[in-house]
């Protein structure tokens, strides 16, 4: 019991209770810029009847879904190459190198992307050499997407590489020996075998993009706002914490549903449809 206590005490006091307190907070009322404890559904009714809430919800859901699909698609050829075309040593080194970005400041990387993507930035300078552009990428959904990719691509490549590298090679060889083409082997043998890793990568990408506020704010221009920006704007604008809590809880519920659906899909037995 002694060994169990530290984690239980800390995580309950500073993780579980704050999250439940957030639920309670969403029922408080704000009068004359002061929050008073209450059990009034007014914030929920107000928030869920606003168009701007639902458009932010739709935008965030769409952007995170697109990010999950796009990043998985971008990552796959790289993970495939790292898993099947290079030696184990190179693969280990590549995975180690891909961990580095997690320990560089995400803010500094986003700032760098801000200057790279700008109208007179490096990327447009490159396009002008080809007599193209300049393209407006900053403060558009493209900017937001670049940020999501920067945030999640390394992680998704790592997860896919590990799950692809764990595939039994003899199954792939068997497919080849039986006359299965390269592309068909990938689609009908390799991807189904690495399904769990691919789905987990997608889920992580979705969760991270769904909750991120830096990319939509500094690369996407914050307008129209995503849910995370809505939380920040509502929180920082005086005492509207209960409304921010409503947004936060809808986000957690959404993520919970997505995660459960994905785990169910990942561990569904083959053959049952």
């Amino acid at each position: 019991m002694l060994w169990r206590a530290p984690l239980l005490i800390w995580q309950i006091l500073f993780f579980v209770v704050p999250l439940f307190f957030l639920v309670y907070l969403s029922f408080w009322v704000v009068k004359n810029y002061r929050m008073t404890p209450a059990l009034d559904p007014v914030n929920w009714i107000k928030m869920l009847s606003r168009d701007y809430f639902w458009s932010a919800y739709g935008l965030t859901l769409t952007m995170a879904t697109v990010a999950a699909l796009l990043v998985s698609l971008l990552a796959f050829p790289a993970a495939y190459t790292l898993a099947f075309k290079v030696s184990a040593r190179v693969r280990q080194l590549a995975v180690f190198v891909l961990i580095i970005p997690f320990f560089t400041s995400y803010l500094v990387r986003i700032y760098a992307w801000q200057t790279l993507l700008a109208e007179n930035g490096v990327i447009n300078a490159f396009f002008s050499l080809l007599n193209l552009g300049p393209f407006t990428m900053l403060n558009t959904p493209i900017g937001t997407m670049v940020g999501y990719i920067a945030l999640t691509l390394p992680l998704v490549v790592i997860l896919q590489t590990i799950s692809l590298a764990n595939i039994d090679r003899s199954l792939v060889e068997a497919a080849h020996n039986l006359g299965c083409g390269k592309l068909r082997t990938i689609l009908t043998v390799i991807i189904p075998l690495a399904k769990n890793g691919i789905i987990i990568g997608m889920v992580f990408c979705f969760i991270l993009s769904f909750g991120d506020f830096v990319s939509p704010y500094y690369l996407g221009g914050s307008k129209p706002p995503t849910l995370s920006i809505l939380i920040i704007d509502t929180t920082k604008a005086g005492q509207q914490w209960p409304k921010a809590a409503v947004v936060a809880i809808t986000m957690i519920v959404t993520l919970f549903i997505v995660a459960i659906a994905a785990v169910a899909a990942a561990y569904k037995r083959p053959g049952t449809r």
Binding site: L19, F21, S228, A245
Partner: peptide, 17 residues
């Protein structure tokens, strides 16, 4: 579980608590 909760949400919960 904590790493799966978006930072804005945990930040808001922590601020309120």
């Amino acid at each position: 579980l904590p790493p799966t909760i978006p930072l804005v949400i945990f930040g808001l919960a922590m601020l309120a608590w």
